[in-house]
Amino acid sequence: MTAFADPINRATRKLPAWPLYIIGAVPPAWLFWQGVTGNLGVDPVKVMEHQMGLWGLWLLIASLCVSPLRRFAGINLIRYRRALGLLCFFYIVGHLLIWLLLDVQLLSQIWADIVKRPYITIGMIGFALMIPLAVTSNNWSIRKLGRKWRQIHKLVYATAILGAVHFILLRKGLQIEPILYLGAILALLAVRLVPNRRKPTR
């Protein structure tokens, strides 16, 4: 396993995380530009809304992969996890803004949707849980919060499940794609339950 992990760890040792923020800004900017110039098909608002949501889910899943990769494959990408998490948050903010401003448009209907529609309620709760995580994704908060920081950041597990359920519920009929995402997320959470045998139990 180390034969596989070592080269990756060596290669990434010198790669900083900050370029991820720049790279991460490219897809949404490109998507918006494609929408403005009429290159997203006949229903561009839905394409933008769904694409931002889906990319956000990918980033969430990527961030959930970091610790199992370190534990089970010895690949250490921990330095990129904050960037993945924050990018996920920004993408979901974008997803939400597209829904608010370009799709629903009406303030009264937005509030009605949030309280009346289970899939939107669930999506909004998932988003709300991300806010404390995004706000505390900095070194100062880690130092300040100490042990509590790790506990707070376990909220991401709930966010991931809520995000996947939101995806399943918004489709007409029971569809395979969102179920696969929920399956992947549940698997990534389940591996965290594997007892750590290397730890001395005293």
Partner: peptide, 12 residues
């Protein structure tokens, strides 16, 4: 809600 609809073809 079914109160409103998005006409297809109007851009973003």
């Amino acid at each position: 809600s079914q109160a409103t609809e998005r006409p297809i073809g109007g851009g973003i």
